[in-house]
Write a protein that binds this DNA or RNA. Sequence first.
DNA 1: CTGTTAGCGCGTTCAG
DNA 2: CTGAACGCGCTAACAG
Lengths: 341, 341
Amino acid sequence: MKEKVYITIHDLAKELDLAPSTISRALKDHPSIGAETRQTVKKLAKLRGYRPNIMAVNLRNQRSKTIGVLISWINRPFLSNLISGIEAEARARGYNVIISQTTDNLAIEQDNAKALYDMRICGLITSLSIETLEYQHFEQFYKSGTPVVFVDRVPVDFDGQKVLIDNFRAGYDATAHLIDQGCRRIAHIGGSLNQMLYKERLRGFLQALEDHGLSANPDLILSGKSLSREESLVMATELFKNGHSPDGVFGANDIAAVCAIQIAKKMGRKVPEDVAIIGFNDDPICEIVDPPLSSMYHPAFEMGKISVSRIIDSLNDTRQTEDFSILTTELIPRKSSLRKG
Amino acid sequence: MKEKVYITIHDLAKELDLAPSTISRALKDHPSIGAETRQTVKKLAKLRGYRPNIMAVNLRNQRSKTIGVLISWINRPFLSNLISGIEAEARARGYNVIISQTTDNLAIEQDNAKALYDMRICGLITSLSIETLEYQHFEQFYKSGTPVVFVDRVPVDFDGQKVLIDNFRAGYDATAHLIDQGCRRIAHIGGSLNQMLYKERLRGFLQALEDHGLSANPDLILSGKSLSREESLVMATELFKNGHSPDGVFGANDIAAVCAIQIAKKMGRKVPEDVAIIGFNDDPICEIVDPPLSSMYHPAFEMGKISVSRIIDSLNDTRQTEDFSILTTELIPRKSSLRKG
DNA sequence: CTGTTAGCGCGTTCAG
DNA sequence: CTGAACGCGCTAACAG
């Protein structure tokens, strides 16, 4: 089964009666190599189908031109879009992408971080697990000069490059939209307040209420953990069961908002007439649910590409002027929240 | 920025006054090492936080304990679940996963296959691009003894390990279910007939009709390409526009079926009373759409795990008795197709 | 401009 | 049971 399949610079060297190092240099356009030998070498290399042995290159260079990605679950719309963007940009720039998922478990996140570190990844892109409140497992990367980029679920009180959206602003805009549509008793279904991101969306929500002269009703402000469908159904039910009957709901993700729509309908409320609803992320389900769900577009693919650029720029010592990339979200109004002409 | 961070077997050797080779053997429980030196070595290794340099190991072994994954898009429900299963199983077994997406483009698939080959991946898992009708770019792996596992979108007329579902059977079951619910003029919205998978689903569809004494109406059998939402909306519209008015629709994926529901409703047909609809994959949208969509559960995560097992078994020369893993799909009936009690 | 040499860190002969 | 030596394929320092 094993043939002579891989050809090395030694093979080329022997064939051209040159030294291996000459081949190596010729192939990477080293200035001190004659134009004609360079041509000859390149020609033969192509002819023989030479391809550098990446494992040898890695060992030699002590790094692997591989970007590590550490996220909770690959199979979530936001994250799979993020990874898709990461992969697209990385491959276009000649980098590989290695992925590991933490299943939202801190211990696994720590283990996998170590494993990626051991592989000498040249950079790490991560969106924290929902449990993560300490960040020592990232320090090894800083110590060894490996750039780290935090995306979306970023740490608090821990320096580093961050790619994220303005969650306060987005929460504010979503809420203001509901108010603009005439809602006055607005509820919020949020995620874990350990997460900056959910805290900020809530803060934006509250600020919008205040700025428009509305008072926040604590009974209408719910906080879950991961905002899974199961959890969201429970919260949505609670919301419509107690006598408060909100006339607007801002869900901190689309799953929560969809559950709100479904429960509201089940309880006999009309959407958006009785209750206007808006979500967050602009997942595909927004166009599927009836009525279609308004949402805040969250540029996942784009965030992936930017994260990769940041890694590569850091490697090239192209100093970033800023540690943050704050992307803008966009309100995507659909029928679930439109009560005016 | 650079400290002495990585410690090698030489460091341990010096400290214990042993030879590096002894350390190497002790660490991997080579039989010819004394029980006590073995203990001593392991203890110190743990103490000093020794971790093998994977790049060196790879170079030495001429392979990289990395499984390559070549798929069209990471951000699609079926594929992101597949990858999630692959990653989970691979990491549990000590393998890494490197991903590359082809964007359903044959040329990119070929390039990326080459790139993965160059990395000396120890195995390849792939689901073909929609365009792929030739398979030479996989032959390099066979030649070098690298196992390849095709998943879901598998090649025709090309040998190799394959992990897939029985698409004929699944198509048959979905159709039989509609017939069982009283449908008589059943339509099919299918994907590219270049793909085995869609051809088989169609074949199952036709066979079910025949077995139940129904004749197929060519006007009710549509074939798209990728079955994207845009494409599906067009096909669904066509279906309900011409005078045929199907009383049942089998969509070859959930997107198509959801579009059928939405268009049917828009055209004033009641689902499932006027037209019963069933999809394929059991994507999350099935529970979101109104009415909830019946579907064929497609064990993506599981298929990922099995694919990894096949790769690892092949590497260990654990001969597979069969080249195929045929997983079973499961009918998940929901409101969109239930017309009986 | 090109060749020689010396590792990168590990595993694996072959000796003892 | 252990050590010495070599090489995986490539690159970079140092000669010429």
